[in-house]
Design a protein around this nucleic acid. Sequence first.
DNA 1: CGGACGTTTCGGCGCACGCCGAAGTGTCGC
DNA 2: GCGACACTTCGGCGTGCGCCGAAACGTCCG
Lengths: 241, 241
Amino acid sequence: MVRDDHAGSALAALAALLADETRAAMCLALLDGRAWTAGELARHAGVAPSTASEHLGRLVAGGLLAEERQGRHRYVRLADARTAQLVEDLAAHAGPPPAAPRTLAQAGAGSAMARARTCYDHLAGRLGILVTDALTRRGLLDQSNGFALTDEGVEWFTGLGVDLAAARTGRRPLARPCLDWTERRPHLAGVAGAALCGHALASGWCVRIGSGRALKLTARGRTALHTHLGIAPDALEAPTA
Amino acid sequence: MVRDDHAGSALAALAALLADETRAAMCLALLDGRAWTAGELARHAGVAPSTASEHLGRLVAGGLLAEERQGRHRYVRLADARTAQLVEDLAAHAGPPPAAPRTLAQAGAGSAMARARTCYDHLAGRLGILVTDALTRRGLLDQSNGFALTDEGVEWFTGLGVDLAAARTGRRPLARPCLDWTERRPHLAGVAGAALCGHALASGWCVRIGSGRALKLTARGRTALHTHLGIAPDALEAPTA
DNA sequence: CGGACGTTTCGGCGCACGCCGAAGTGTCGC
DNA sequence: GCGACACTTCGGCGTGCGCCGAAACGTCCG
């Protein structure tokens, strides 16, 4: 009882950090996995710099955000992958209501965000689904009895020049499903998801669009996805399967 | 921007439901997977019945809880497994601080809760870990590249008289890891975890202690765990490995 | 039918918190 | 050094919300 009492206040304190609309908007923005300055977040959330400063202080004190001071700037980012996953999960649980994206302008070609973007540190959007499905189709990822890379999958990463065993750090799972809120199906996250995204950016398969989390698939990326995963070059542009 | 704005308020609204200590305590209590009456929850949380009634109204309206009226009673339970997982995840993220359970009285034999309990609808506590480890050791559960049942694992369930394919409903994963806040390691949750827990209760492997979520392993359960998983009969009493 | 009981509705109280603008601190660049 | 700039601290204001007790509502049981 005493124990649960303590757990109750800890849970409430954690939830309270995300229970404010301004702080929630900040955390969602930080889901792109990058560090933002306090001022950028203030403008993004539409509040005065002083207000943003107080919010960031709370989020850092609560352990949700990590900060790094550089000169007159205060950079903040999500504390770690585990925290990012928590925000994702909450957003996914809260998100479902807008079930009908019926606007023709949006449904037609789809926005750049819907096509390809990062979700903290891995690929998401239609590109994320495309890659996840291709991995599954080729027997590199097993989704039938859970969500795990097969031995062939690990070798596939090695062939790409990515050493997953070395990338594995701490308790973070090698592969886990991440359900984001535009596509409704899970895509690859975890150590392998992060490694793949890092490799894709490093190898020029895709580049960031502007300052946001949206990505653009390059010509090199199109051929790479075709040779490594058998994904048709125009698959990303085609209507959602 | 507009879109993220909406996502922000949705996230904040969801988090606000758990941001109150009283509501948090209620949700944690409901993690035992059973339905409680409004009065029970009021007493458990230490607030007036009128206050509890308002809180429950919010939680139900927010979709976290499902209610069932029976005569003059109002029974509530967590809305679904997905919601339970969300509360679990938040509690696990909030919990870690109490890192040192050094009290001799607790560390020695351990409380009944620490030994065996339910976590929503699956086994948790030392028993949960014991079973998960045994499944892994026997090659029925693969944790090396993710968290998934092997084909042998599915057959093992069949041998137990549990048809996992039939139990599989909707999008709920067959096997997923659940990290609870007394043991620090993941144990089996998802459809398979729920089926195993259901089988254990139905077959008299364990019984509920009182009205809470604590479980007691029976003599029959001890032999069953030994024959089916090779778990030593006194393993549950031994100090944490 | 009437009393016991679980639950709900309604005021009313008080605190906690989010917001801002103004003023202060520290860093950068000329 | 001296402005420009990013951020922080500090009052002060308003609102939202959690709490309770009193009273109303429904159900159950004798």
